[in-house]
């Protein structure tokens, strides 16, 4: 696992384990020796299938869940050795938003957002003023007196975000924050999170099972599988050069297609993986024109990740060895990843 050095760590997890006793005796390790470092000011994604332990991991960070073993350092301070008072102070610097929003249903939007200020003892007039500022950030100034039941899912999550920002946190933990929202709303919430990260410099940790979420906003990502980190790195890196099986399973369309097209393969083929730079070049055209190779495209797919495109293409493997070699050499020269794949 690559842990970058240089940027100061906001959150450092070292050898974290969380074991649940099983009812029939024995135990289940929800988290098994997890180590990772989240830098100040980045948007860090943790992705995994349900049951991979990602929720447990993020809940350990603010000790909603007590780990069995290991260390969690927030700004260098170990969360696990804190007493309740220190923990409460730390939690005010590390807010959380949830899949089900978890707003108080009997309080107005304004009072929900004011809650963190109330418990911190902020004077009323100051708190009220801050509530208005916060609601403005999330674009809900008009809803201060509404009750959560009158809002849409996306609006509720915006209120939850405003509430999370009230205490001027350094970290925002997002536990499946967009999973209960439709794709359009997900986009707008992600854009808001990105905006908050940029404007306020808040470190954001996102837990999700949707690759699209990671692709859209995260700088780095860890793939969690069976309580272990299967893979970690920058989003570009992990997405283009997926190594782990868990990563391939999660990467939606490309990985799916990779697998399914491999399964359907009846003849030997070449898989070409390209990224932004060479996606712009007319590689196949050049291949046909200049090398005189017949190209038979079996499958192709292009994905946009943020500002960049990534894709893969399956072409039938040229039958004579010479043109096969020529083709592969040429593609490699162009900086593409080429792999021979055979029918299974």
């Amino acid at each position: 696992m690559s842990i970058e050095t240089g940027a100061p760590a906001q959150i450092e997890v070292v050898g974290l384990r969380k074991v649940f006793p099983l009812s029939g005796g024995g135990e289940f390790a929800a988290l098994d020796d997890i180590s990772l470092k989240i830098n100040k000011g980045e948007i860090y994604g943790i992705i995994g299938m349900s049951g991979a332990g990602k929720s447990t991991l993020i809940r350990c960070m603010n000790r909603l869940e007590t780990p069995t073993d290991g260390k969690i350092l927030i700004d260098g301070q170990d969360v696990l050795t804190m007493n309740q008072k220190q923990l409460n102070m730390m939690r005010r610097k590390m807010s959380m938003i949830f899949q089900q929003f978890n707003l108080q249903m009997q309080k107005t939007v304004g009072r929900n957002v004011r809650y963190p200020l109330e418990i911190a003892g902020v004077p009323k007039h100051k708190a009220n003023q801050r509530v208005k500022e916060l609601l403005k950030i999330v674009g809900l100034e008009a809803k201060e007196d509404a009750y959560p039941a009158q809002l849409s899912g996306g609006q509720k999550q915006r209120v939850a975000i405003a509430r999370a920002l009230a205490s001027n946190p350094e970290v925002l933990l997002c536990d499946e924050a967009t999973s209960a929202l439709d794709p359009m709303t997900t986009q707008s919430i992600l854009a808001l999170l990105q905006d908050i990260n940029k404007r306020l410099g808040i470190t954001v940790v996102i837990i999700t099972h949707e690759m699209a979420v990671i692709r859209q906003v995260c700088t780095r990502v860890a793939i969690l599988d069976g309580g272990k980190i299967a893979e970690e790195g920058t989003v570009d890196e992990v997405f283009v050069h997926t190594r782990s099986a868990a990563g391939k399973r999660l990467f939606g369309i490309i990985a799916d297609q990779e697998n399914s097209s491999d399964e359907k393969l009846t003849i030997p083929a070449l898989r070409i993986v390209f990224d932004d730079e060479n996606a712009q070049k007319p590689i196949i055209a050049t291949l046909i024109r200049e090398l005189g190779v017949d190209v038979n495209i079996l499958a192709a797919d292009v994905k946009r990740i943020g500002e960049k495109s990534y894709g893969q293409m399956l072409i039938a493997m040229p039958e004579d060895l010479e043109s096969r070699k020529k083709t592969m050499d040429y593609l490699k020269e162009q900086g593409l990843t080429v792999k021979e794949v055979y029918p299974q």
Binding site: L64, N88, M96, N102, Y115, P116, I119, A160
Partner: peptide, 13 residues
């Protein structure tokens, strides 16, 4: 709702 209580805990109540 347990989630509402957890949210309050996560805010340092």
């Amino acid at each position: 709702d347990r989630g509402i209580i957890e949210a309050a805990q996560s805010m340092g109540s």
